[in-house]
Amino acid sequence: MQSSFYPIGTPGVPWGEAEITAWRARQQRQRSYADEVLAAIDRLRDRYDVVQYGQLDYAPDIYPLFALRSRGWQDGRPVALVTGGVHGYETSGVHGALRFADRDAADYAGRLDLLIVPCVSPWGYERIHRWNPRALDPNRSFRPDSPAPESAALMALVAPIADRVRVHIDLHETTDTDETEFRPALAARDGQPFTPGSIPDGFYLVDDVDAPQPGFQDAVIRAVSAVTHIAPADAHGEIIGSPVVAPGVIRYALRSLGLCAGLTDAPYRTTTEVYPDSPRTTPALCNEAQATAVRAALDYVLGQ
């Protein structure tokens, strides 16, 4: 656990441009968006319409943004939206979405139109970071006039079909680095003290406090529990500081917090969270849990 102040900035003083530049200089590419994500999307081109919905110009790097759209798209058909990699470091969100697209999506042909966006934040994916290069969290930036280009591009993609989106499942994960890097960096950036917390050991969901769907959330939890373990409540009956309202389920104000899952008014929405650093699971099981969560969400909605 980090006990000293984050190595950039002055305690109690929010970052300015100099601190953001210093932070960005510390971020090194650790994996390849082209090799690990774009290559996987290319292998799916014979089954999907691959749509480029934007491009991020973070000189010297340029990142094309792609979505997978069902073949035979019909304007009157309900849409299922699957998003991953809003936080680029959350690996299973990206590869869980790709696994679902490769293995499972054909089972829903003709029943739902699928829009799958596997990696919303490729700069963060390559650097295994939560933020974009402007030290902004895309998952707090889904709001009008978004300051995060990743979020703005996804909002523009979804806007024309937002009223058709019946279900949106946003795939995330929590790692040990939330406590050792990301939350300390957030506190330093905002000029706030860092208060250590804990990482939930297992899978859980974030429902919408303003439009809860307990049956929907429960269906996803039950399906995923056959793949990996569900995070228990802590001693206070909470997960990450929020009351547990059902096994493995908490609630956030999705829209007002600018979260990706609040992007539309879809009646069925959830954010998944898995914990790949747990000794009780593996990265492969986390990918499987994410794909299973998508299937369970779609099956529940079709059953309604």
Rank of each mutant, 00 (worst) to 15 (best):
R26Q: 15
A246C: 02
D190T: 11
S151V: 03
D207C: 11
A105G: 10
T175Q: 00
R166H: 02
P14E: 08
S141R: 08
P14D: 06
V209Q: 10
A291T: 11
S70D: 01
G262M: 05
R134Q: 15
A18D: 14
T195K: 10
Y48F: 14
D75Q: 12
A97R: 13
D210M: 13
F194H: 13
T195F: 11
G248D: 03
A231W: 09
T271C: 13
A101C: 07
I8P: 04
A156W: 05
L114F: 00
T195E: 08
E90P: 10
A106R: 11
L81E: 03
L285H: 11
T195L: 13
A18F: 01
R189I: 11
I240N: 15
P283E: 08
R295A: 03
R99P: 02
P122V: 01
H236M: 11
V294C: 05
I20Q: 14
Y268G: 10
D218F: 00
L56F: 09
P7T: 05
W23Y: 08
G248I: 05
P243F: 04
V50W: 01
R251V: 00
R183C: 04
A106D: 13
A162I: 09
V274C: 15
P160R: 07
R164L: 11
A159V: 12
G72P: 00
Y63T: 12
